[in-house]
Amino acid sequence: MRVPLALLMIATPLAAAKRPTVAQLQIQVKKLTEERDSLKQRLAATDSLQQDLVAAQQARDQAKADADAARKEVEQLKANLKANASGGDTLLKDLEAARKEAEASREELAKVKAENAELRQQVAAAPREGDLVMLTRDVQPARPLNLNRATPHIKASGFFASRPTGVVVVNVLVSEKGEVLDARLLQGLPGDSPDAKAANEACVQSAKNLVFDPATSKDGNTRFKVWQGVGFYLD
């Protein structure tokens, strides 16, 4: 049995007076979903960079700590050398080893600084054609072209079973060519019933069949790869 469905982007008939219409609810859900999706996408897109920056910071701190420890050891070796001239040869060897360790720490610190500078350049660099970007005010989101052909088909598990209803949001990765490269369930129907799971999976599969006019820069001259949400309203 084919279940009537309506995408979040399609207006629905008005309901009774003094009560929110389905279209109004859909618009509210769409706005909230888009706002949430935008935040999640920004977090997902910056998560890897944040991890790299944290790792670089930790490496720099460790290099500083190693350098401080090496300096303290050198100072201690110098003090021991003055206090015990008979052990000068051994202390000189230890001093040389400490000097090498300090030099290695300085080289590691320089490497971390260079990596930090490169990461800052990557953050500041303007996105190029085909880059994966976040949906911001400077990026026009991808526009689906075949919504009518992406309607999920759901069958109830039994004759007396009620059909699933609610909102399903699928996150799709749209290439700079408008192709869906990946689709993931972002918000499914509540519960873990077989009908709910089947409805969620049907929406994910339908999202994979979408074709988009790709996301572009504000001037429309540069096409980007983006993650963005597609909502399905199951009525």
Rank of each mutant, 00 (worst) to 15 (best):
V123A: 07
G158A: 01
F224T: 07
A44M: 11
P13A: 13
A198L: 13
K225R: 15
L53I: 14
A23R: 14
K225T: 14
A150C: 09
K177R: 13
L77Y: 05
L147V: 12
V22A: 15
A202C: 08
E34N: 11
E107R: 15
G87K: 03
S162D: 14
S175K: 06
S86G: 08
F212D: 07
P164Y: 08
S206C: 05
D213Q: 12
Q57P: 04
K93C: 00
V22K: 13
L92A: 04
L43D: 10
T222P: 10
S162M: 06
R184L: 10
V174G: 00
A156L: 06
A196N: 02
F224I: 10
A207L: 12
L39I: 12
V211G: 00
V230A: 01
A85C: 00
V226N: 02
V22H: 10
A65Q: 12
K82S: 00
D68S: 12
P20H: 01
L43T: 09
D52W: 08
M9L: 14
L189M: 05
L119A: 00
D89H: 00
K30R: 15
K93S: 05
P4Y: 05
L81P: 00
D61T: 09
L181T: 01
A23M: 11
L49G: 10
L7I: 03
W227D: 04
P127W: 07
E73C: 07
Q205S: 06
A156Y: 00
R71N: 11
P194L: 03
A44N: 07
N200V: 00
N84P: 01
V168T: 00
D182H: 08
A65G: 01
G87H: 00
L145P: 02
L210A: 01
V29F: 12
C203S: 06
S217K: 14
A117M: 05
M134P: 02
V168D: 00
P214W: 02
D192I: 09
K72L: 10
G191Y: 11
R19L: 02
S193D: 04
G166N: 07
D52R: 15
L49R: 13
S48N: 04
L39S: 04
Q24P: 06
L8V: 07
S193V: 01
V22E: 15
L234G: 09
G87N: 06
K18I: 00
A196P: 06
M134F: 01
A202G: 02
N171E: 12
Q50W: 14
E129P: 13
W227E: 05
A102R: 15
S48R: 07
Y233P: 03
A202T: 03
F232A: 04
G229L: 01
L49I: 12
V204M: 04
L181A: 02
C203H: 03
A110C: 05
A125H: 02
G88I: 08
D94K: 12
P190C: 08
D192Y: 11
Q187H: 02
A79Y: 05
T151I: 09
Q76H: 12
